[in-house]
């Protein structure tokens, strides 16, 4: 019992204790990916910008909604989605990718998780430039509601951290889950109000969004940036996800932390 508590304590204190390690590794991953490119990670800004701009304009025509309304809505939703889906996809493979390290040095698993999370946060920040530009062009000036995204993003990152540990451990043991997650994420994208609006669903179909965690998470970032404080039930949903994932994470860490190296 005592031993498993110390394992969990190790994993949590690692966040601060190994800050120098995961921040450097995550940053080097970015550097590595954009080596020899002139503008480096700003390519991600450009590619997301082109995608958001063109699809935003096209769908606002198809759905006959004003660009001023649809483009910010789509840009914020899409960029938040990119953070979520990229981190969850990466989480599945992260222990397998770091296996040479895991098999040689004994480090808390959090280090590998935070390395990936940090990598995706940096990409998210580059994408966030697009949101800023879109809000400057189409927004209504500065709003106090904007500040609500700070607690929202922090909570989302905590959730992503916990989910990443869960997916990392499970996918290392059962490699097929990685493929299932990829397919699942592709599918859920269409069931999440990102390029369509919730109001276009009838009240009968509203369960599609009510039971969709991604909807609640995205809404917490999107609605403050569109000038409306998010409904309380979105916050409650997110907190429930965090508590549930924390319970599963603790269980998995306690039970399987020491097995991960054997599964690689």
């Amino acid at each position: 019992m005592k031993k498993s508590q110390s394992i969990i304590k190790n994993e949590i204190t690692a966040i601060a204790k190994y800050f120098h390690m995961w921040s450097l590794l995550g940053w080097y991953d970015i550097k590595q990916r954009y080596r020899r490119s002139m503008i480096g990670p700003f390519w991600i800004t450009i590619s997301t910008g082109v995608m958001v701009g063109s699809i935003g304009l096209m769908f606002s025509t198809i759905f006959k909604s004003p660009v001023k309304e649809f483009l910010p809505y789509f840009a914020i939703g899409q960029i938040t989605w990119l953070l979520l889906s990229a981190q969850l996809t990466d989480a599945c493979a992260m222990f397998v990718q770091s296996q040479s390290i895991i098999k040689q040095v004994s480090l808390p698993l959090s280090v590998h998780v935070l390395r990936k999370l940090w990598y995706n946060i940096i990409l998210f920040l580059h994408n966030f430039l697009i949101i800023i530009i879109v809000l400057i062009v189409f927004g209504n000036g500065f709003l106090w509601e904007y500040f609500l995204i700070i607690p929202a993003v922090i909570l989302i990152l905590i959730l992503l951290f916990l989910l990443s540990v869960i997916l990392g451990i499970i996918c290392t043991r059962f490699r097929d889950i990685t493929q299932i997650i990829t397919v699942f994420l592709q599918l859920i994208y269409f069931f999440t109000p990102i390029f369509w609006m919730k109001k276009s669903l009838g009240s009968k179909q509203s369960w599609i969004t009510d039971f969709n965690p991604f909807y609640h998470i995205i809404e917490l970032v999107r609605s403050p940036l569109l000038g409306k404080a998010p409904d309380l039930y979105h916050w409650i949903n997110l907190l429930i996800y965090i508590v549930l994932s924390a319970i599963i994470t603790f269980f998995l860490i306690k039970r399987f932390r020491n097995r991960v190296a054997y599964w690689l």
């Binding site: 190994y18 120098h20 390690m21 450097l24 590794l25 080097y28 550097k31 590595q32 080596r35 020899r36 040479s100 390290i101 040689q104 040095v105």
Partner: peptide, 22 residues
């Protein structure tokens, strides 16, 4: 050479390798 990457300079790799030794 754990963690060292061919795309990085030798100088960068010193930091990369050292950080993995804690």
């Amino acid at each position: 050479s754990l963690g060292m990457d061919n795309e990085f300079t030798g100088y960068e790799n010193i930091f990369m390798r050292c950080v993995l030794m804690g």
